[in-house]
């Protein structure tokens, strides 16, 4: 294992985060705080509690997920797309480094950034709403699993994308709507039965529900099902990445 190379890629990506701290950390933390102010403190006070949890507190897990999902994808996809775009990818491909090590470096850094961001948003939420975490290990595990899985997914997008528009299209047009419609701001029980059924086709429902379960001990779907779905996304992402490197898809001719 070329640990030095993994460390080099990891540190390079982490330094990028510190160089662009406004974009990487400050912007998502501030924009999520605005949600807490508007939906938690302002509008939230006139909305009745859900499953015994005040509305402001109810939306915390969903908003953390929203940021973590989009940032995991953005960080990992940009991390691998940029060297492809500039042509510097030749260095990674000609270095004595395996595909697994490349993935660990890029996805590891993207995961770390999202984890830091998720924890920062959680800390910030405390300033605006009451937050209680019923099961901290479970919350940590769910957060970590989500960060890894969606960083892997972001890595796939970074390999697939041919331009900056394609790089943005999945986070903006797929992930954000699915997160909004996946119960970030409401319980699925509040929907008409037909929309509840349709919502179960949304894979992000399971992640948001499982994450919320670790906070308040209840969710829209069974905790076990949430875990199985999260593990399934992880396995599918890993299998796609394995195929990419086996075939050299968009990397080697």
């Amino acid at each position: 294992m070329n640990f030095q190379a993994i460390k080099t890629i990891y540190m390079f990506e982490m330094m990028r985060m510190f160089r662009t701290i406004g974009q990487s950390i400050a912007a998502p933390v501030i924009s999520t705080s605005l949600y807490f102010v508007v939906f938690g403190s302002a509008i939230g006070s006139s909305i009745k509690s859900i499953d015994g949890v005040s509305y402001g507190s109810f939306i915390v897990p969903g908003l953390i997920m929203l940021s973590v999902l989009t940032q995991s994808i953005s960080n990992a996809s940009f991390g691998i797309y940029f060297p492809r775009f500039t042509g510097t990818i030749y260095e990674q491909l000609s270095a004595p480094i395996s595909y697994l090590e490349i993935v660990i470096g890029y996805v590891g850094a993207a995961t770390s950034k999202s984890l830091i961001l998720g924890l920062l948003i959680l800390g910030t939420a405390n300033f605006f709403v009451d937050v209680s975490i019923q099961n901290i290990p479970l919350m940590t595990l769910f957060l970590l699993l989500t960060c890894i899985t969606f960083s892997l997914f972001g890595f796939i997008i970074g390999i697939w994308a041919e331009n900056f528009e394609q790089l943005q299209i999945i986070p903006l047009l797929v992930i954000t709507p699915l997160t909004f419609l996946g119960g970030s701001f409401y319980s699925l029980k509040m929907l008409p039965p037909i929309w509840q059924k349709i919502s179960f086709l949304n894979p992000l429902v399971y992640l948001i529900s499982g994450f919320r379960w670790s906070f308040y001990g209840s969710g829209d779907v069974n905790l076990g099902v949430s875990f199985i779905m999260a593990a399934l996304f992880l396995i599918v992402s890993l299998l796609i990445i394995r195929w990419i490197f086996k075939t050299g898809y968009k990397l080697k001719t």
Partner: peptide, 10 residues
């Protein structure tokens, strides 16, 4: 330095 690290050199 990045290139050196990629090739496994401290």
């Amino acid at each position: 330095q990045f290139t050196r690290g990629l090739f496994g050199f401290k």
